[in-house]
Amino acid sequence: MSETFTKAMARNIFYGGAVFFFLLFLGLTFDTMQTLPKRDHRENITDSVVRGKHIWETRDCIGCHTLLGEGAYFAPELGNVYTRRGGPFIKAWIAAQPTGAPGRRQMPQFNLTDQELDDMVAFLKWTSEVNTNKWPPNIEG
């Protein structure tokens, strides 16, 4: 049995299979890149959205929240928070943190300016408009 199962053939299958499926992956990626503009509405990415994403990143929001389901599971999903709560609520909420309620999960105070809060909302609004194949299942995220 071992004569007809050779290491050389196993190795060839490894290299061949890896290259083959990576090429397939590149092909699918290429198609995805062609299709994405229709789904992510990149024409709506304003300077404000760009700045908002930067604020999102430099406050490490992903360390507690999920965004489109990715991140930490300590705090609510924010991919659809704009549709759930609306812009003014989001601004007021961020500005009012932390709640200080004893024993409850706390969100830090980031001392964002009004402009920065607007950028944050713009980013979350744009995110809520991405075509995510109807995810999340309901408004609670």
Binding site: M1, T4, F5, T6, M9, A10, I13, G17
Partner: peptide
């Protein structure tokens, strides 16, 4: 005992 060819290809 084994199918024709190298057994490795059969896994594939």
């Amino acid at each position: 005992a084994t199918p024709p060819g190298d057994l490795a290809i059969w896994f594939f």
